[in-house]
Amino acid sequence: MESKRFVFIGVGGQGNLLVSRLLGEAALSVDIPVVVSEIHGMAQRGGIVESAVLLGDVTSPIVSNGEADVLIGFEPLETLRALGKCNKDTLVITNISPLPPFTVSIGQGKYPPVDEVLDKIHTKVENVIALNGVELAKEAGNPLSLNMVMLGALIGSKAVPITAEAMKETISTSTKKAFLESNLKAFDLGMGVAANR
């Protein structure tokens, strides 16, 4: 099958590594060749966390600049910063709820207004799905389910050759039972936004 390259970008604690692993497991469950790569180490210390999922006829585990089919950004500033992974045809799915870095709070640089961030993204790529993932996660009953909202939006965008059913099956078997209900609800809410765009 044709290769597909997904880049997930987020901030330590937002759970993008879990989501890239789940997408990989779901791919394996439906016999799609898959390789996932992660950068560990600084994840718990507020740094940027990047992961990649590559599906289909490809063995390289990472995505070069300009080569992402989809960029999934969990934080608007980080989506903007990671735009180098995109070409003009890349689909960008981004959360719009900001998480300012501590450098801003100590006066080293300013967090640009979110509207400007989104405008910039729109001028660079043609396809953008922007959603307030944090609000949707809260609506699902768990603010930490932002990652499931984003995964739902990705599946809802139809950019992945994996069905919502297969993805939910993996979520059910591979995430903590205590959070399953809110995870699935968050997934559905994210999927709804992307499907109705």
């Binding site: 210390r45 507020g46 740094g47 500033l77 903007l80 870095p101 801003v104 080293q108 300013k110 640009p112």
Partner: peptide, 11 residues
């Protein structure tokens, strides 16, 4: 792109 505030890992 404007200069974006850095996000280094921190204590």
């Amino acid at each position: 792109l404007p200069d974006l505030p850095a996000r280094p890992p921190t204590l």
